[in-house]
Nucleic acid binder design. Structure first.
Lengths: 261, 261
DNA sequence: AAGTGGTCTAGACCACTCT
DNA sequence: GAGTGGTCTAGACCACTTG
């Protein structure tokens, strides 16, 4: 279990060196070792990681140093501390989904969980627009169409693109029959943990196909969100384009709340 | 200078008590005392606050406790640490503006600073829509119209609303003739420090008046951003509605980058 | 009662900036 | 060299959860 023994201590000086963190502060080295264990699925979402005193013994550093590493992972929402219980690998629960990965709220500000309806899952070939996924044009991808309703009313139409190589054997049945959230599915079935999203937003005219699904008039203004979802170490996982009818809802951007302050 | 002597130590137990933090952890009490000094303009933006060892002496707590309080203020971007130099009150420089308070980027992702053109500053009466400002309908407000160009092309039209009571003597000349950013003006002239914004985004049809200023066709889809800007302790400072032509630019939402990771 | 995270302390040494 | 923040340690005690 001690294959992560750190060789360098206090040698925080000089070229931070590309790629490796050999000369970084101890707590950064610990943080990197932990995220590597995480991405190698050493612990599963919902599991407790070893206690801080135990980690301190294993890494041969002080508890304070472990705390500083874990502090950052908690701030990144990769780990979750619970006093008296332990430190856990964050799960993609409905609540987390709603707070950190779903930014559409009612005009009154009310945050309501949407219901999902998977419309289709198709095999396709990646195009140049899928580059942010890390795919090359021609690579196999899945495209999933998804309709989100809020209080029964269709509000969002999603097109989700995934690299087939990273999601082997994915089917519409698996996607539609999942237990929890979509990111929970990635996590539970493929060990892929979405920890960060970047979204680009613009206003356009609603395409006819989208408008008809959303029950709005074609050519009416619609909000378009282009999302890239990342796992540990900035590895892209998912591309998602969302068309949002903002006649009754809007996009909420609140960095503070999102960071849990 | 020691008017902030803390009476309670280690008494972190029991009713966190509404309003007061008397029973909160020491570092939270220190943080609160510091933000109170900040909002009382005890130190001006750009100034260094006392060193950590000095604060530790003054507060009669350990340096580690001071560090934890300052850590949070740095994470909130209220303070800025510089190794070897000191800890400074954050200023509203152009750079900070561009990174934390301006979310419009080119479709390529390029972040370009806009140029501002103040079109008008009018006296008006607050309406019900101005409630988030903390004003009651009928209170005096200023409304400022502002055109932002990116690479010479008009992209954003802003309507800024301010409570006249908090910005006495504000004129169009002052607004247009300011040295740096708009939030820098609030800071330098009125001691009001914007530290957080919340934005709500929707897609609508461009009103004729806005469309003509932006040089786009009326009724075309346009992005609308309704912003509330807050100072310390969540005090609302500014209401801003922005109409954005997203034919060549888009809104970027990246919590991580915004948090400086 | 045992184990976990949360707070706080005191002190050492390093890295950086300024004079 | 003096002063600042940055890292790291070791240990005490508190608050909370679980058995």
């Amino acid at each position: 279990m001690l294959d992560w023994r750190l060789t360098l201590r206090h040698s925080m000086s000089h070229p931070p060196a590309a790629g490796t963190l050999a000369f970084a502060p101890l707590y950064k080295q610990v943080k990197l070792a932990l995220t590597r264990s995480l991405s190698a699925s050493k612990w599963r979402p919902g599991d407790a990681i070893p206690s801080e005193s135990r980690l301190a013994r294993e890494f041969k550093v002080s508890v304070g140093t472990i705390r500083k590493a874990v502090d950052e992972l908690v701030a990144d929402k990769i780990l979750l501390r619970q006093q008296g219980r332990g430190t856990f690998v964050t799960e993609h629960t409905e609540d987390r989904q709603l707070y950190y990965f779903f930014h559409i709220v009612g005009k009154s500000g009310a945050r309501v969980a949407p219901t999902h309806e998977i419309l289709s899952l198709r095999n396709a070939r990646a195009g140049p627009a899928d580059r942010p996924l890390g795919t090359n044009p021609g690579d196999r991808v899945y495209r999933v169409h998804n309709l989100l309703r809020i209080a029964g009313r269709p509000v969002i139409f999603d097109e989700i693109t995934l690299a087939a190589a990273r999601f082997p054997g994915l089917t519409e049945k698996i996607f539609a029959g999942r237990a929890g959230t979509i990111y929970g599915l990635y996590q539970a079935r493929y060990g892929i943990n979405v920890v960060r999203i970047v979204e680009r937003i613009s206003a356009q005219r609603a395409p006819a196909a989208v408008a008809s699904v959303l029950g709005m008039r074609a050519e009416n203004p619609i909000l378009i969100i282009r999302r890239v979802a990342y796992s540990y170490h900035d590895a892209p996982v998912e591309l998602r384009t969302s068309w949002v009818d903002t006649s009754g809802h809007e996009y909420l951007s609140d960095l503070w709340k999102a960071e849990g302050r």
